[in-house]
């Protein structure tokens, strides 16, 4: 076989394989992407909550995107506790001032960052939340203090539409 012929074969072989691979990937992608959140799921992006009935020291739990959201109206004691913590003592250092713009109101996803359970109110070693599944303790700012969870409970995008209504998402 001459050298020229071999090269021609090699080129055809590589080109055919490459086109085949691109074609296969193009067919496989829709099969994978169909499992991602669909249009109807994405459409439920925001929810408005009336918080007028909430008194200090109580928590309202609402469902947003299938997940519980804690809305806590904090007492002065809880705010002081949350704001007087040294950053060195935190596993995931975040200032309470950044988590709760209005110190009286703490809004966060009620989902443990370990494996997704819903932590219990007013429990645990830091008077905040305690996750019953694998024993993570959160403080009054929803920050992880002890246990296997890696991060603080997530603060979603939210805003006060008026004095009594919070819009989440």
């Amino acid at each position: 076989m001459s050298e020229k012929k071999t090269k021609r074969r090699d080129f055809l072989f590589t080109a055919t394989t490459a086109v085949g691979a691109v074609g296969a990937a193009a067919v496989v992608w829709p099969m994978i992407d169909q499992m991602n959140p669909d249009a109807s799921v994405k459409a439920l992006a925001s929810t408005e909550v009336d918080v007028s009935s909430l008194t200090p020291g109580n928590t309202l739990t609402v469902l947003w995107r299938g997940k519980p959201v804690f809305i806590r109206r904090r007492t002065q004691k809880e705010i002081d506790e949350a704001r007087n913590v040294k950053m060195e003592d935190l596993i995931h250092p975040e200032k309470d001032e950044d988590r709760a713009k209005n110190p009286e109101w703490l809004v966060m996803l009620g989902v443990c960052t370990h494996l997704g359970c819903v932590p219990l109110n007013d429990k645990g070693d830091y008077n905040g939340w305690f996750c019953p599944c694998h024993g993570s303790h959160y403080d009054t700012s929803g920050r992880i203090r002890k246990g296997p969870a890696p991060w603080n409970m997530e603060v979603p995008k939210y805003e006060f539409v008026d004095a009594n209504t919070i819009k989440i998402g």
Binding site: M35, P37, V41, G66
Partner: peptide, 17 residues
Amino acid sequence: VTWLWGGYSVDNPTLTR
């Protein structure tokens, strides 16, 4: 995880798959 769920939490799309 979002891809496995087909949403932002375990829900109907998760159940059917």
